[in-house]
Design a binder for these strands. Structure first.
Length: 492
RNA sequence: GGUCUCGUGGCCGAGCGGCUAGGCUGGGCUCUGCAAAAGCUCCCACAGCGGUUCGAAUCCGCUCGAGACCUCCA
């Protein structure tokens, strides 16, 4: 039996709209389901948000000792287009344009998505199920809902009967709206005349002739409704009731709202004990998204190849930037903010190196335990990473002070500090030092050390011209020289 | 139009009844042959107007402004 760390983790539950103490249904096991990407385009900064936010949830829960099964789906089928492409699958549409197999497109962008997430040091979920691989499960769930009487068949499609559901249950409880408001504001969609009520939504959709992705079903040739995949796959891998369901705020309605209704109708219970929603990334104060066409892809950030970008940004800068804001707040993108994040991140990483070489003495001026407790308190308070990062910079100051000799630390405290610092920075926040150390780097390191010796000799002789010449030339090559009391240090 | 969020210093962003985070930027000082780095330090903000309170950025009301969802969206 594994030990769960003593903690008072609270998380904000979107359904009850309050912070609740986290208590898993079947401790030490935790089931976490997050809505993943629709793979018909490159991942942009907006996709990094839930990727990183729930990576933190995943990492922290594991750190606390829970056995977490993290499921994040890949949507490669099912989302309807509006406008000119009534009823045509988004992926199928793209496929037609590029004359590729739909699955080829899906695979291509799935791989690209994974690459981007890997670059951001987002840990891979335990399971990444594809919607197209779970058509049978989805059909089974549609049947169950029909059996329970909360759906009806109409012209080869199956619709969820919201009105009937709402008689006994509350459709709208998650997104905070009532069925009348929804009805009034529903615009006319394809297939509206097939529905008994405008608020009803398709759980199985009849495929029009030009629709490429289609499967035979008891109701005819078609494809699953928009929200079925998450309901079917979450219950398959995590059970009818699991702990946490996450996703972007923009999915609350209608996606998550409908998921709840489907699960109640099919399985007689609500799927998740806690609902978590990350907020949006904005650009010029507006949501960055596909529909507004104002997005910048992660690859573009990494390469700097975009008009908005003044420079390229390291993946870890993006990660740091996102974690400096709380996941439930919007973050506004700007070059200025990213450059600031980049500098702050470098400072943190330098401190990590300094810490590794720190020397202890016989007394401590820094209360390491109190510091660590504050860090845990920040994480326990709904994963408050900005506060955690603020505490990290507090200890960075202490680390630098100890190095300069203005503060001191005992061997025991130093050991604890190293352990906890690494836990918070690398294990929980998931940062990683940039990989500079390889053979050629070692070689150039030796060469730089040699040049520094020559410079030291020149300095002894008060030959400032030579000393400065060596330093300036190294600086031009991108090697920064820092003179300290113990001799010169350098970094790339 | 409906539902709901949010408006914090030069910028980004926490806090959500008192002790006024943190990062970036800018000024000063220490160290140093100079520089860089680091340390110390300064710049004490909470959209506006009322109200509650001994006390409000934090609670309530109104006004103004921004945004999200209501359609695929992370």
């Amino acid at each position: 039996m594994s030990e769960i760390k003593q903690n008072k983790l609270k998380l904000y539950d979107s359904l009850s709209r309050e912070k609740r103490v986290f208590e898993p249904l079947k401790s030490p096991h935790v089931g976490l389901y997050v809505c993943g990407p629709t793979v018909y385009g490159d991942a942009h900064l907006g996709h990094a948000r839930p990727g990183i936010a729930f990576d933190i949830v995943f990492r922290y829960l594991k750190h606390l000792g829970y056995k977490v099964r993290y499921v994040r789906n890949i949507t490669d089928v099912g989302h309807l287009e509006n406008d000119a492409d009534h009823g045509e699958d988004k992926i199928a549409k793209k496929a037609r344009l590029e004359e590729l197999e739909p699955m080829e497109i899906a695979q291509f962008y799935t791989d690209r998505y994974m690459d981007s997430m890997d670059a951001l040091n987002v840990q891979r979920p335990s399971i990444q199920p594809r919607a197209s691989g779970h058509i049978i499960e989805q059909m089974e769930m549609v049947s169950k809902i029909l059996d329970s009487g909360y759906a009806y068949e109409s012209k080869g499609s199956v619709y969820f009967d919201v009105k009937k559901y709402n008689e006994k249950h509350n459709y709208g409880k998650l997104s905070g709206r009532n069925i009348e408001d929804v009805r009034e504001n529903t615009r006319s969609l394809d297939g509206q005349d097939e529905k008994r009520d405008g608020v009803d939504f398709a759980i199985w959709k009849n495929a029009s002739p030009e629709h490429i992705m289609r499967w035979n079903s008891p109701w005819g040739s078609g494809f699953p409704g928009w929200h079925m995949e998450c309901s079917a796959m979450s219950s398959k891998y995590l059970g009818n009731e699991f702990d946490i369901h996450g996703g972007g705020m923009d999915l609350k309605f209608p996606h998550h709202e409908s998921e709840i209704a489907q699960s109640v109708a099919a399985n007689c219970c609500e799927p998740a004990k806690y609902w978590m929603h990350n907020n949006m990334v904005t650009i010029d104060g507006q949501k960055m998204g596909k529909s507004l066409n104002n997005f910048i892809t992660l690859d573009e950030f990494f390469s700097g190849n975009h008009n908005f970008l003044e420079q390229a940004y390291e993946p870890m800068t993006i990660r740091f930037f996102i974690l400096q804001a709380h996941y439930r707040s919007t973050v506004d993108f700007s070059n200025e903010a990213l450059i600031a994040a980049s500098k702050g991140y470098d400072k943190l990483m330098k401190a990590a190196e300094t810490l590794a070489e720190l020397k202890s003495s016989d007394k401590s001026d820094y209360d390491v335990k109190a510091w660590a407790n504050k860090c845990y308190a920040a994480m326990d308070d709904d994963f408050n990473t900005p506060i955690l990062i603020a505490h990290l910079f507090d200890v960075v100051k202490a680390i630098n002070s100890i190095k300069v000799g203005k503060m001191s630390i005992t061997a025991d405290d130093l050991e604890l500090l190293k352990a906890q610092f690494n836990i918070f920075v690398f294990e929980i926040l998931g940062f990683k030092a940039s990989e500079k150390s390889n053979n050629s780097a070692n070689m150039s390191g030796s060469l730089i050390d040699m040049l520094l010796k020559m410079r030291h000799q020149a300095k002894m002789n008060k030959d400032w011209a030579t000393a400065d010449d060596i330093r300036n030339q190294l600086t031009d090559l991108g090697v920064a020289i820092k003179d300290t009391k113990d001799g010169a240090e350098w970094e790339l």
